[in-house]
C-alpha cells in the first residue's frame, strides 16, 4: 500500500501528519509527504525559479523546505522515524524531477519508506499527477481550507481520499460505517475491516432506508455487514437511522467518529454538477472522513 500525505501550513498539518503516519505504520506502507507550493503566475514563474535557484546556491532554504523540515522533525519527535546524526536537514539535496516535482534527499537517509517531495502549482493538478505517477492508494489531506478542494479531490483523484477534520491525538475514535447495497459500500466495508483490525477500533454500522427499500431489507444489509466483521473478530454495533441520508449521518456522527464511506455509483457528470451523498457527508460533518475508491 502507498500513502500520500499532503501538508500545508505547519500547525494545521500536525493532525494530518500524525493520523497519516499512524495509518502508514499500521499498514506498513510506504509514505510520501508532499508539500504543494503556491501556484505561481505564468508572468513570474521563470523569475521565481531563478530566485529559488539562487537561494539554493546561497544555502538559504527555498520555500517549502522549511515546512518539510518541520514535518521531518515532527516525525522524529513522534518516533515515526528513527533519529540519526546523519539524517538531518543540515545537508539536503533537491532532485528536480519531471512535472514540477522535487524530491528531497537527506544525507544518510536509510529508509525508502518515507519520501519528502515538493511540488509547485495548482493543488488538485499536482496531487492528481502525484497519485497517477506513483500509484498511491490513499491520499490524506487536512480538513481546513477551501471545501471545493475536497470536492475536486474526491472527484478527480484516483485513490481513496482521507479528509482529516478536527482530529485529536488524545481522543479514542470509533469507526462509523454507513452502508447500503452499492459496490462502493462493499469497498468501504473492506477498508473499515482493515482499519478496525489495525487500530483495534470499535465499529458502528449504520444504514438509512432510501427510496423504496423496506426496513427489513435495510436490516438485512446491516446484519450481513455485521457478519463480515464478526468473522474478523471485530466488535460492532448496528443502528438503523431515519431521515434524509446525508443529514441523518452528519447528525449521528460524533466528534470521535471516523466515517468511512464508499464512493457514489452516480454518473460522473451528475456528480460534478450536483455532488453526491458521500461528498455532502464529507463536506458537512465535523470529524475525519475516508472516502474509499
Amino acid at each position: 500500500m502507498k500513502i500520500l500525505i499532503a501538508i500545508g501550513g505547519r500547525e494545521f498539518s500536525k493532525p494530518t501528519l500524525d493520523l497519516g503516519m499512524k495509518i502508514a505504520n499500521s499498514f506498513k506502507s510506504s509514505t510520501t509527504i508532499a508539500y504543494v507550493g503556491k501556484k505561481i503566475s505564468q508572468f513570474s514563474e521563470k523569475d521565481v525559479s531563478v530566485v529559488h535557484q539562487n537561494l539554493d546556491d546561497r544555502e538559504l532554504y527555498r520555500p517549502g523546505i522549511r515546512t518539510l523540515e518541520w514535518a521531518y522533525d515532527f516525525l522524529i519527535s513522534k518516533k515515526y522515524i528513527e533519529e540519526k546524526d546523519s539524517n538531518t536537514f543540515d545537508d539536503y539535496l533537491l532532485v528536480d524531477e519531471e512535472n514540477s516535482r522535487m524530491k528531497v534527499l537527506l544525507k544518510g537517509q536509510q529508509s525508502d519508506k518515507i519520501d519528502l517531495i515538493m511540488r509547485t502549482g495548482e493543488i488538485i493538478e499536482q496531487l492528481k499527477d502525484e497519485v497517477e505517477t506513483n500509484k498511491h492508494d490513499i491520499t490524506i489531506i487536512g480538513g481546513g481550507g477551501n471545501k471545493g478542494i475536497h470536492q475536486k479531490l474526491v472527484q478527480f483523484i484516483d485513490s481513496s481520499v482521507f479528509v482529516v477534520k478536527n482530529y485529536s491525538v488524545y481522543k479514542k475514535y470509533k469507526i462509523l460505517l454507513p452502508v447500503n447495497d452499492s459496490e462502493g459500500s462493499d469497498m468501504a466495508i473492506d477498508t473499515a475491516i482493515n482499519f478496525a483490525k489495525s487500530y483495534k477500533l470499535n465499529v458502528e454500522i449504520v444504514s438509512v432506508p432510501e427510496g423504496k427499500k423496506s426496513i427489513e431489507e435495510v436490516k438485512k444489509i446491516l446484519n450481513k455487514t455485521k457478519d463480515k466483521f464478526s468473522k474478523n473478530k471485530i466488535k460492532t454495533t448496528t443502528k438503523l437511522i431515519d431521515g434524509l441520508t446525508v443529514n441523518s449521518i452528519v447528525n449521528y456522527a460524533k466528534d470521535d467518529s471516523i466515517i468511512i464511506l464508499g464512493v457514489s455509483p452516480k454518473n460522473l457528470i451528475m456528480k460534478y454538477f450536483f455532488g453526491s451523498k458521500p461528498l455532502s457527508i464529507a463536506l458537512k460533518c465535523n470529524c475525519p472522513v475516508l472516502i474509499t475508491k
Binding site: G37, I40, S44, D47, P63
Partner: peptide
C-alpha cells in the same frame, strides 16, 4: 510581488 509571496 510574486517572488516575495513565493517565500511563504
Amino acid at each position: 510581488a510574486m517572488i516575495i509571496y513565493s517565500t511563504g
